[in-house]
């Protein structure tokens, strides 16, 4: 009888271990992906955002940005709008946090004011695009829980296929499916499922370049919204790493003078 109990406890344990394994593997892959991208310290880039509506009409937005890696915390970043002309000089600053809401400020040059942005707005669109704020903010491991699904090939690359679930209740998604390249752990594709678990958007990364012989950056990110037929593509250029940026370059003063 004792033996029987032992066996069943043992079985229960192995079942539990078996059930947890995908979550552990999923987390491990996500951690490896983050580690692979650690140590870039600071970077800047330029960005052209192309919005395409259902009828193929195109609208173009230009901006540039700076980011600073913060150890053991989320990154700090600044985005400055160049076009359209009426929002030129408008700049947003974000302090990402591993847990809890990010801090975000917006500088509006027309009224010379820095305004704090309500930080729970994650699911809203960025500048009328198909990218939500949460798609563009720094992807910290702690923002999701993970489950490993399978190995799968995407864009001809061998990938790990993971499912991840946003921790934040204000996220617009129930889950994402992410494909990480097996070689270098860079993301190749993400599928976003809305709160009703219907496929909402697909993000595809392409034109990867390696910078500072270490960090992979996709020069194109294309987001297709399956529910409204619209598309947004981001074309990054002029990536620079190890630039002269310090903590005080991410202050309200710096936000005001950002050009």
């Amino acid at each position: 009888m004792k033996n029987l109990i032992r066996v069943s406890i043992g079985l229960a344990f192995s079942a539990a271990i078996f059930a947890f394994a995908p979550a552990q593997t999923g987390l491990e892959i996500a951690v490896k992906a983050e580690k692979a991208d650690n140590g870039w310290v600071s970077s800047s880039n330029r960005l052209v955002m192309t919005l395409t509506n259902r009828n193929g009409q195109i609208t173009i937005r230009q901006m540039h940005g700076y980011s600073l890696e913060v150890e053991n915390e989320g990154d700090k970043s600044m985005t400055i709008f160049d076009t359209p002309r009426d929002v030129k000089g408008t700049a947003s600053m974000t302090f990402t946090h591993k847990t809890g809401d990010d801090d975000q400020w917006l500088f509006l040059p027309a009224i010379d004011r820095v305004k704090r942005i309500s930080s729970s707005n994650k699911s809203g669109p960025f500048m009328g695009s198909e990218f939500a704020f949460e798609d563009l903010s720094s992807q910290e491991v702690e923002k999701y829980t993970y489950k490993y699904i399978s190995d799968e090939s995407v864009n001809g690359q061998d990938c790990y296929k993971l499912e991840r679930y946003p921790v934040s209740k204000t996220s617009g998604y129930k889950r994402n499916i992410v494909w990480y390249n097996k070689d270098n752990f860079r993301p190749e594709k993400v599928e976003f499922y809305d709160r009703k678990d219907a496929l909402l958007k697909t993000l595809t990364y392409s034109k990867y370049n390696q910078y500072a012989s270490e960090y992979w950056r996709a020069n194109t990110m294309k987001m297709v919204n399956h529910q409204n037929g619209k598309e947004t593509s981001l074309a990054f250029s002029d990536y620079q790493f190890g630039i002269d940026l310090v903590d005080s370059d991410f202050s309200q003063n710096a936000l005001k003078r950002a050009k």
Partner: peptide
């Protein structure tokens, strides 16, 4: 108080 992205309308 901000109600954001009301009914996924943006």
């Amino acid at each position: 108080y901000t109600f954001s992205n009301i009914y996924k309308s943006g």
